[in-house]
Design a protein around this nucleic acid. Structure first.
Length: 529
RNA sequence: CGGGGAGUGGCUCAGCCUGGUAGAGCACCUGGUUCGGGACCAGGGGGUCGGAGGUUCGAAUCCUCUCUCCCCGACCA
């Protein structure tokens, strides 16, 4: 399944990548060539005249792409791996993923799904069973041809998605309508060999969840497809503080093997679109390819209807680009393991003792209130250094406490999202902190929404497309006749694609922005990641 | 795959043109003074220069081949 669609005009299957596990260990492996300049571009420019101890972050306005890689390095989210296109997710980055997993997993369970695990390796022949599917994925599939010291009878593909192995299995699990619906999810890694990769957004290997369900009717499957799209929207909005637009993908953008695909589309800080999650109605395509049938209550035999839906570590990239600023990333409180960092301030031992006593007292209360908290009591760094470090890492709220605060029975609260510093009484601090975290969570959403609205506009004149895309980018709401030719023309001439056909919008008679044929609703055109 | 850039301690980079066997800043360790927006002093540990081959008395430096990463393009989860 594709978290991002657009597979229809791939090359032939011959373009596949062949990997081998049969490399003799004594030779051929370059052990010493590990030094690279991978993160070399990450620390390049310097605007601050005074020497900085830590990573410098390129301004977003100067080079957004560079800012993105800088900020990932600065927040220690990921490293480049020795293998092209692969990445090492560092603890700070993985912590965000774990939070995402926890939130999604709960929603999956609450909607009746169970987790399972299917194998990494899939017989190559499986991929060929669904025509569109193999056509869509073949070019980016890694194939294992050797193992165990010899050539394999049948090559194994490293899963780019698991539809084939899962439907081969469901065939045995499903006999009767009483076995339906079958609601399974799996958390795993997948591999898609990409020509060009970017940390989190498009890596050769990535982590995700893929849900695969089976239903008795087309309608049931449609309901499931939309239900999970809704789960993704809820997750994006409530946890990531990321406003998204639900919509349907065009034919050329849909998943290879799907009847139709829905997605949630988000706007990044630079006005480009990012597909944040997809939900596919597979109809009977895979059931027919793998001959998965069930007996109805009436005794007839029918192929089952299927859905699949996925959301990946790409969402970490979305989080970075939706909320990050020139000082680093900003983690929405609901996805932050450390929601509050405490920076105690003191000079002398007696001051330290008093400050730390107060810190211990209120951190205990905060922990009891369920707040993720970290006390930065390192003595080798000044408070200012710590402020910058935690801001870079995106911790939503900082509490500063020094002798002057103790005198007033207060602490200083510093918000990461807007930089505001306000004093707060030590009494009732858990309540104040919870309220502030809530305010940050909603503040991030509102800010992202305002940004998206600012960069969204109806466009009825195709000649303005490039002008707008080159200046501010953003979402261009235009009428489209539904033809793939017009879609293709726009893509070739402006690099913008149809992100989705929004589901919630007023019907409006108009004419296709490209060919002037009649249209009854607008679609979103945008340049995308 | 095409164009460009780059591989030298953990990081950023100098040295390479004009070969003589490695240097700075940051980070790290020790001690001390500091600590309300990226502190300072002193001392210290760490690299054989992406890899292979070649030229040479001698190679980070010259030559050949090769691997890798980054950016742009093509392409796109």
């Amino acid at each position: 399944m594709a978290v991002e669609a657009g597979f229809c005009d791939k090359n032939s299957y011959h373009a596949r990548i062949v990997i081998s596990l049969a490399i003799p260990l004594q030779q051929g492996i370059d052990r010493g060539g590990g030094r690279r300049a991978q993160s070399g571009r990450a620390f390049g420019s310097c605007y601050d005249p005074k020497p900085m101890a830590e990573a410098k972050i390129t301004k977003r306005t100067e080079d957004y792409s560079k800012w993105y890689t800088d900020v990932i390095a600065a927040a220690e989210l990921a490293d480049y791996a020795p293998v092209k296109g692969c990445m090492i997710i560092r603890p700070n980055g993985y912590a965000i993923w774990e939070k995402m997993q926890a939130a999604l997993d709960k929603m999956f369970k609450d909607t009746g799904h169970q987790n399972a695990y299917f194998p990494l390796f899939i017989p190559e022949s499986f991929l060929h069973k669904e025509a569109q599917h193999v056509e869509g994925f073949a070019p980016e599939v890694a194939v294992v041809t050797h193992a165990g010291g010899g050539k394999l009878e049948e090559p194994l593909v490293v899963r780019p998605t698991s539809e084939t192995i899962i439907w081969n299995t469901y065939k045995n699990w499903i006999q009767s309508y009483r076995d339906l619906p079958l609601l399974i999810n799996q958390w795993c890694n997948v591999v898609r060999w990409e020509m060009r990769t970017r940390l989190f957004l498009r890596t050769t290997e990535f982590l995700w969840q893929e849900g695969h369900t089976a239903h008795a009717t087309y309608e049931d499957a449609e309901e499931e497809t939309l239900r999970m799209l809704g789960v993704y929207r809820t997750f994006a909005e409530d946890f990531m503080a990321l406003p998204v637009i639900e919509g349907r993908k065009s034919e050329r953008e849909k998943f290879a093997g799907a009847d139709h695909t829905y997605s949630i589309e988000a706007m990044m800080g630079d006005g480009k679109a990012l597909q944040a999650g997809t939900s596919h109605h597979l109809s009977q395509n895979f059931a027919k390819a793998f001959d998965v049938t069930f007996q109805t209550a009436q005794g007839t035999r029918e192929h089952v209807y299927a859905t699949s839906w996925g959301l990946s570590t790409r969402m970490i990239g979305a989080l970075i680009m939706a909320h990050g600023d020139d000082n680093g990333i900003v983690i929405p409180p609901k996805l932050a393991t450390i929601q509050v960092v405490v920076v105690p301030i003191f000079r002398k031992p007696d001051e330290k003792e008093k400050v730390m006593a107060a810190v211990d007292a209120f951190t205990g209360a905060l922990k009891a209130a369920g707040i993720g908290i970290k006390v930065d009591d390192r003595d080798q760094h000044s408070p200012g250094y710590k402020y910058n470090e935690w801001e870079r890492r995106g911790i939503p709220l900082r509490i500063e406490v020094g002798p002057r605060d103790l005198d007033k029975n207060q602490v200083m609260l510093a918000r990461r999202d807007n930089g505001q510093k306000t004093p707060a009484s030590q009494n009732d601090l858990p309540r104040t902190v919870c309220e502030t975290l809530d305010a940050i969570q909603s503040g991030l959403f509102e800010k992202a929404l305002a940004h998206r609205e600012k960069l969204s506009r109806p466009v009825d004149d195709y000649s303005k497309f490039n002008e707008i895309l080159d200046s501010e980018s953003g979402f261009l709401w235009s009428h489209w006749c539904g033809s793939g030719d017009c879609e293709e023309k726009v893509k070739n001439e402006t690099k913008a694609t149809i992100r989705c056909i929004p589901m919630k919008q007023e019907k409006e008679a108009g004419t296709c922005v490209v060919c002037a044929a009649p249209s009854e609703a607008r679609v979103i055109f945008a340049r995308a990641y």
